[in-house]
Amino acid sequence: MYVRYINHPFESSMRIAHLILAHNNPQQLEVLVRRLIYADDMVFIHLDKKTDAAPFEHIGNLPNVFFIKERAKVGWGAYSIVEATLNGFREILASPFNIDVVNLLSGCDYPLQNPATVHNFLQANPGKIFMEFELMRTNWQEALSRVERYHLTNYNFKGRYLLQSIMNRLLPKRRMPNRMTPVGRSQWFTAPAECIKYMVDYIDQNKAFKRFIEHTWAPDEFVFQTILYNSKYREQMVNDNLRCIDWSERNPSPKTYTIADKSVLLCSDKLFARKFDLTNHADVIQAIDARLDDNNEGNSAVISA
């Protein structure tokens, strides 16, 4: 059973816009969205353009839930995931709602705290930007090749990797535009809407930067951090993205949580975690639900199967 709380005793002057990047599993996406719906918060969903939207359409009938109209075809490691994120940011900024904070999630994330706790935490930390950032030239050197070499991952033509190899053999190492210091790590973050607008405007107004990023690998993990780190917002950056993510298996993607991870997740002080698989490991999500429901005792609720 999954619970959507409605009449909350807690009132918040803050409005959060959750932007979810999704591409599959409509049932799991709906469970996540129902957990995020709270007070005046908004949920915006970017659905990969390669995905049939029909099985997801009913989710848009939930209160304060919107699908991003300008969908991008997302490729792993390609600039297209940055494009999808920017499309979401632009529609959030253009919406008539007064958004204070934007929270970037994937469709396989899940909250570890109830919405009131999330609001309390963010209200206690006004103006702070929660994202992981490591200096590529010192602490994240394995990522340097992403920016120093040409990558044609965002393109789809025969022989692109041969051309990429030739380019990197003949051309000098690439350098970040405007002598920017590259930083990054995880793509998921929580930031004030003011900073979201700054990042969107920076990319729109700096065409050379955009062209540079289009020819890097997995820019979603460093482009937004790099923009803010090289701006007046650096002092507001906190090197913590508020997510519980397990990379212990040393795979290209993080570990999928199972019921064996229950104690770790329930004891975590992080706000969100990733990643989860409702189809094969629903029990760990149900364990989190039980804890969240206990913490919301006394609220009115709508129960959904």
Results as ranks from 00 to 15, higher is better:
148 E>V: 02
79 Y>P: 02
200 V>D: 04
159 G>C: 10
237 M>A: 11
257 Y>T: 01
77 G>S: 09
196 I>H: 00
286 Q>P: 04
231 S>G: 07
300 S>F: 04
175 R>T: 14
291 R>G: 05
85 T>D: 09
16 I>T: 05
199 M>R: 03
88 G>T: 06
229 Y>G: 02
242 L>K: 03
40 D>H: 11
37 I>R: 07
200 V>R: 04
58 H>T: 13
78 A>Q: 06
261 D>Y: 06
204 D>Q: 13
172 P>N: 08
159 G>H: 07
37 I>N: 02
5 Y>M: 01
101 V>H: 05
280 N>V: 06
148 E>T: 10
53 A>I: 12
116 A>T: 12
34 R>D: 10
86 L>S: 06
270 K>L: 08
108 C>R: 06
3 V>S: 05
24 N>S: 14
96 P>I: 07
109 D>G: 01
119 H>P: 03
141 Q>F: 14
157 F>M: 12
110 Y>D: 11
265 L>F: 09
171 L>S: 04
201 D>C: 10
250 R>P: 00
85 T>S: 14
64 N>D: 10
231 S>K: 07
28 Q>V: 10
12 S>M: 12
124 A>Q: 08
301 A>N: 08
215 H>N: 14
1 M>W: 05
2 Y>N: 12
137 R>E: 15
297 E>M: 12
205 Q>L: 12
117 T>W: 04
89 F>E: 00
172 P>F: 12
271 L>V: 10
110 Y>T: 04
106 S>K: 00
185 R>Q: 15
82 V>G: 07
182 P>L: 02
271 L>R: 01
175 R>P: 02
297 E>S: 15
127 G>H: 09
182 P>Q: 08
33 V>G: 01
231 S>P: 03
42 M>I: 13
24 N>A: 13
104 L>P: 01
289 D>W: 07
45 I>E: 01
130 F>Y: 13
39 A>P: 00
184 G>Y: 02
297 E>H: 12
223 V>K: 02
257 Y>F: 12
44 F>P: 00
135 L>Q: 11
132 E>S: 03
12 S>F: 06
212 F>V: 06
305 A>N: 13
58 H>L: 11
107 G>E: 01
53 A>E: 13
184 G>T: 05
72 A>I: 09
